[in-house]
Design a binder for these strands. Structure first.
Length: 111
DNA sequence: TCATTGACTACGT
DNA sequence: GACGTAGCCAATG
């Protein structure tokens, strides 16, 4: 029997926002955290992503504030994250998104 | 309970 | 503009 999902709620929200990221778009951990009301918990978003393993969460669309694929080491392969992004039309070079500023997706604005 | 770590961010040099 | 340090919050040992 499950009890309160207060803590899970935060993770659930992260998953929900991550799933809302449109094709060929990316966002940052801090942006999601801020959208959820936890701007200081950007790390927690990353933690949620780590927990999203096995879920339908496009974690490859979530990068740090400079568009750097910091979490690529958590994926199966070595360049899987970059490959996924490039497959969506995202220009990635050296684990970093080039036109990050152009494809940046902000839930607080787009939504 | 305390100490360490981590898919971050901001500030200072 | 690159590098180092500090701050933050939660999970893990």
């Amino acid at each position: 029997m499950e009890q309160k999902k207060s803590s899970d709620n935060f993770f659930e929200k992260v998953y929900d926002v991550a799933r809302l990221i449109p094709y060929g778009r990316v966002t940052s951990y801090g942006t999601i955290a801020k959208y959820l009301g936890a701007a200081r918990s950007a790390r927690m978003v990353g933690w949620a992503m780590n927990n999203s393993s096995g879920k339908d969460i496009p974690a490859h669309r979530v990068v740090n504030r400079v568009g750097l694929l910091t979490g690529k080491h958590h994926f199966d392969g070595t360049n899987l994250m970059q490959q996924l992004l490039e497959s969506e039309g995202v220009e990635v070079v050296d684990n970093k998104i080039q036109n990050f500023k152009e494809i940046f997706w902000d839930p607080a604005i787009e939504l």
